[in-house]
């Protein structure tokens, strides 16, 4: 069996584009609007989200045979909440400036439906390594959307990428203006809508 056909690899690759949690299941839209004004915050958010999803899947999958059915949601939530607080603490200690910008949104990963959804539908029924890969894939799929949206918004909204000006002064001198609308939340909605359209027309076949 080729490596790309193995269930472990598929668990990672499918949610990237084909079964992307944002596009197909419309999950995690809230933070996709909030943290995508700048590329830098989007990247950090994507990394935090990916590690939380991956490790919560791993932990819950490892415990899946001993978790009593009737309290499984509570257990899942405790694990997810702990991981999110841990990620927040690390950001505060090592990336203070970025954590200031992300403010409440790191904490809100707890309520991101993608994390809970993957724990509930995948990790409870699959072995740890495969669950870990599924978590990585879903986090990365979400991150991909976040980074794409942030790229477009920062480029057109501020004329910068990662804080560096990329639109030459020459353009501004000749009447080019940054699109203030890109800095507002509705712009993210529109971009996500266009991306869903793009994804649907590529994956159709």
């Amino acid at each position: 069996m080729k490596m790309t056909q193995s269930p472990t690899f598929k668990a990672f690759s499918e949610p990237l584009v084909k079964n992307n949690p944002v596009f197909i299941q419309s999950l995690g839209i809230c933070s996709a609007l909030a943290v995508t004004v700048q590329l830098k915050t989007a990247i950090v958010m994507a990394l935090a989200m990916t590690s939380v999803t991956a490790f919560s899947n791993l932990t819950i999958s490892a415990m899946r045979n001993v978790i009593p059915r009737n309290v499984r949601m509570i257990v899942e939530l405790s694990v997810i909440a702990s991981l999110v607080i841990l990620a927040d603490e690390i950001l505060r200690a090592y990336f203070y400036d970025i954590s200031k910008q992300l403010s409440v949104f790191v904490g809100l990963i707890i309520t991101n439906c993608i994390v809970m959804g993957r724990a509930e539908t995948y990790a409870l029924g699959n072995p740890p390594i495969r669950s870990f890969m599924d978590g990585l894939g879903n986090g990365a799929g979400y991150g991909l959307v976040l980074v794409t949206v942030a790229f477009i918004r920062e480029l057109f909204g501020a004329g910068k990428l990662l804080g560096f000006p990329v639109v030459p002064q020459f353009f501004y001198d000749h009447g080019y203006m940054n699109m203030g609308f890109m800095q507002l939340a509705p712009a993210a909605f529109i971009i996500i809508g266009l991306l869903v359209w793009l994804q649907k027309s590529i994956v159709k076949g």
Binding site: P68, N70, V75, S78, V79
Partner: peptide, 12 residues
């Protein structure tokens, strides 16, 4: 269930 949740809470 109670014991399991208590252990998870403690570890977390």
């Amino acid at each position: 269930s109670i014991v399991f949740t208590a252990i998870v809470a403690l570890v977390c």
